[in-house]
Amino acid sequence: MFARPNPQMGTQRDVLPQRAAALGIDVLLLGILVAAAGFVLGAGLPLVAVAAVVAFGYLTYFEGTYGQTVGKRLMNVVVVNHRGYPCSYRAAAVRTLVGVVDALPSFFVVGLASILLTDGGQRIGDLAAETVVVRSTERGARM
């Protein structure tokens, strides 16, 4: 695998387009995984449960391990705590769980408003987890 990229602190207000693109990439990737599961499970509650577990696991694992999901890696941004230290698994889990609030009422309106209105460019999940998303100063080896 690869080492976590180094954060470029102070850039959290500049990465909104990269964050949006990273979200789109991750949603597309998760959609493909859930669609594949749908072929096996069919529609219904089991598929919803699998989708929730896969999304939670994907976001928590990649952000807790590398500070980046596939989308964030491609967009050259990284999640770190507010002091620039690596995002922990706990912080990644909090970001992910509270991210449900960010998605309200639809299309991440609350999260976008929070990013635009907070000094640190943080969505609600970031505020709860004490994290920021900043530019990465380097790209590591491939995942």
Rank of each mutant, 00 (worst) to 15 (best):
M1L: 10
F2H: 13
F2W: 12
F2S: 11
R4L: 06
R4H: 04
R4N: 03
N6T: 15
P7E: 06
P7V: 08
Q8E: 15
R13F: 05
A20N: 06
A21T: 09
D26V: 03
L28P: 05
L29S: 03
L29G: 04
L30E: 10
G31L: 15
L33W: 05
V34M: 08
A37N: 09
G38W: 10
G38V: 09
V40Y: 12
L41Q: 04
G44Q: 05
G44A: 03
L45R: 14
V48S: 04
V50M: 12
A51S: 01
V53D: 02
V53W: 03
V54Y: 00
F56Y: 04
F56T: 02
F56Q: 01
G57T: 09
Y58W: 00
L59Y: 11
L59I: 07
F62R: 05
F62S: 04
F62N: 04
T65N: 04
G67K: 02
T69D: 09
M75R: 14
N76G: 07
V80E: 01
V80L: 00
G84I: 13
Y85P: 02
C87R: 06
C87H: 06
S88C: 14
A91M: 03
A92G: 02
R95C: 01
V100L: 12
V100A: 14
A103Y: 07
S106A: 14
S106F: 13
G111Y: 15
L116Q: 08
D119A: 13
Q122L: 03
I124K: 03
I124W: 08
G125I: 01
D126L: 06
A128P: 08
A128L: 07
E130L: 09
V132N: 12
V134T: 09
V134M: 08
S136T: 11
S136C: 08
T137M: 14
T137I: 15
R139G: 12
A141T: 12
A141Q: 11
R142I: 13
R142D: 14
